[in-house]
Design a protein around this nucleic acid. Structure first.
Length: 275
DNA sequence: CCCCAGGAGACTC
DNA sequence: GAGTCTCATGGG
């Protein structure tokens, strides 16, 4: 992929990423539009992505992180044109894909997706963001970006200081004990997130579902957004509506193939925004 | 007052 | 194995 150094803290990458659809489609809860670009913290570093015509400017970074962290995070190398090409007669999917043009599946940190999607259960995106923000302020590390204090998502080391008293102050509701169960399993070694990378999808899913508060839907979101399993098709309330209203079925049953998860994001994004 | 939110667990049958 | 209830919080 084509990276170009613009100045001492900005690297430009040529790609078809659309930041708005990518960061406002409910896959990621830690990046917001600040009027200049989409700013947030991931992998312990603050960054701002600025939309260009056929490129993204990655700000507050260097060449090493741009190519090693942020390019992969934005999934700039993935060719999305082949995703919907296999379904030329699906008019609704064609509309959804057009509406979602430039929507990339982010390659997020696995621990962050585990905690975030536990919090997402029976919840709305606005409140999910607030709970995650408070979790990061409480247990993450401060990062200064343009005179603003942002916070990292807690890493494995930070999890050692997590207590139930702290978690129950996040206003997460009934999810507090689920968050705590995930933290306990991860820091005790009962669940090794690094190990999931090498497991087949069904086995990784089963391991994730041992966590209290992780059912099929949450596990599938972790698999898709954290572990890059693009064939996985998470079924939430919005997608169930699409399956029922458009396709006349309850179960996708793998009908969208190896990149079903990306199709799922197109459909979710389109339907949730009125399509 | 109601219903809903990127669901899951416990319980019943 | 399929229904039903409940769970805590905030927005519309």
């Amino acid at each position: 992929m084509d990276y170009q150094i613009m100045d001492d803290s900005t690297v430009r990458v040529r790609c078809d990423v659309d930041l708005k659809s990518t960061f406002e489609c409910g896959q990621c809860f830690r990046f917001d539009n600040d009027g200049i670009g989409y700013t947030g913290v991931a992998f312990g570093k603050a960054v701002r992505f600025v939309q260009g015509n056929g490129y993204i400017d990655i700000c507050n970074t260097d060449e090493k992180d741009a190519t090693g962290i942020w390019g992969p995070f934005l999934n700039v190398d993935f060719d999305y044109s082949r995703v919907t090409g296999a379904f030329p007669d699906d008019e609704y999917l064609k509309q959804a894909a057009e509406y979602s043009r430039g929507l990339h599946i982010l390659k997020q940190d696995v621990l962050e997706t585990v905690i975030s999607f536990i919090i997402s259960s029976n919840n709305n995106i606005k409140r999910i963001k607030g709970i995650i923000q408070r979790f990061c302020e409480l247990y993450g590390k401060p990062v200064i970006f343009e005179n603003q204090t942002l916070y990292t998502f807690p890493d494995a080391e930070d999890l050692k200081s997590v207590t139930f008293e702290g978690v129950s102050g996040l206003r997460a509701g009934f999810r507090d004990r689920y968050i705590m169960d995930a933290v306990d399993r991860i820091r005790s070694g009962n669940l090794n997130l690094d190990e999931l990378v090498s497991l087949p999808t069904s086995e990784a899913r089963n391991r994730l579902m041992e966590i209290k508060g992780v059912g099929l839907k949450v596990a599938d979101c972790i698999l898709l957004f954290g572990l890059g399993r693009y064939e996985v098709f998470p079924k939430d309330v919005w997608i169930k509506r699409v399956l029922s209203e458009i396709y006349g079925t309850e179960d996708d049953n793998g009908m969208f193939g190896d990149y079903g998860g990306i199709v799922q994001q197109y459909l979710f994004n389109f339907r949730r925004n009125g399509g």
